[in-house]
């Protein structure tokens, strides 16, 4: 059984087809990359999985049972956490409180405030933001805010983590740090699906990659297979993969 599985997942916006009948699966413990040009439907697919949007057609199952139709908070409590393409932090709350929202509400079991605070501090430590724990999240740098989102997601104790372009806008060094962070997340046994444009990062850490173009899955396979795929090369014409 796959950890997460989608069948014929589709989403239209008016007449525009954002995701068109995509089949996909994610297995326990792997890192799956989701790539494609801008507007290929990657973030929409994340929104469908995390229930930010209902699918127009198709079903999504998690651990064998269908999750389509559940509200976002239930998806989160089941163990699917996410970050956002444009950071969505609680800007006026201290950093540690941001993370505490995840550990207090997102774990699926009722935890005490002290316990939630302890987990929040642990996750801040994990993403190396402990020194900024009492600073309002809005005052953090972009790179730190992205890490904060990861910490908030991790605090919900997920089995599956959806990372939406956490490396976009980061410097070369920060990208290296982010890659290291993802490796450490995997080491904790958490399955990762990541959308990314930074090619060397995605080729370096993913076990498997799905390529979307205009809402359709055009290729799927190991990084080496995808890089050699004719359709993929056409889509990324001129770009070095």
């Amino acid at each position: 059984m796959h950890l997460l599985e989608g069948e014929g997942v589709s989403r239209n916006f008016g007449g525009l087809v954002a995701v068109a009948g995509v089949d996909f699966y994610v297995d326990q413990g792997e890192i799956l990359g989701l790539i494609g040009p801008n507007g290929a439907g990657k973030t929409t697919l994340f929104n469908l999985i995390s229930a930010a949007l209902p699918p127009s057609a198709g079903t999504i199952s998690y651990e064998g049972s269908p999750i389509t139709g559940l509200p976002p908070y239930k998806i989160c409590r089941l163990g699917i956490a996410r970050t956002f393409q444009t950071v969505k932090i609680f800007a006026h709350l201290p950093t540690v409180r941001n993370v505490m929202v995840g550990s207090l509400f997102g774990t699926g079991s009722r935890s005490s405030a002290t316990e939630a605070l302890r987990i929040a501090d642990e996750e801040l430590e994990f993403v190396e933001l402990s020194s900024l724990r009492d600073v309002p999240a809005g005052d953090l740098t972009l790179a730190s805010q992205k890490r904060l989102e990861v910490a908030r997601a991790l605090a919900t104790q997920p089995k599956l983590l959806l990372l939406d372009e956490i490396m976009a806008g980061l410097t070369r060094n920060e990208v290296e740090e982010a890659m290291d962070l993802i490796a450490r997340i995997r080491a904790r046994g958490i399955t990762v699906v990541m959308i990314e444009h930074v090619m060397h990062a995605i080729m370096g850490i993913c076990d498997r990659i799905i390529v979307l173009d205009f809402g359709v899955k055009i290729a799927e396979g190991t990084p080496a297979e995808v890089a050699a795929d004719k359709k993929v090369i056409e889509v990324y014409l001129g770009e070095e993969i």
């Binding site: 995390s50 930010a52 509200p71 976002p72 908070y73 998806i75 989160c76 409590r77 956490a81 996410r82 956002f84 969505k88 932090i89 609680f90 800007a91 006026h92 709350l93 941001n98 929202v101 995840g102 509400f105 997102g106 774990t107 699926g108 908030r152 997601a153 919900t156």
Partner: peptide, 14 residues
């Protein structure tokens, strides 16, 4: 957190 960012609150389990 709802007042700060409703969407993020929902996806954090609220």
């Amino acid at each position: 957190s709802i007042g700060e960012y409703e969407e993020a609150a929902a996806h954090s389990g609220i």
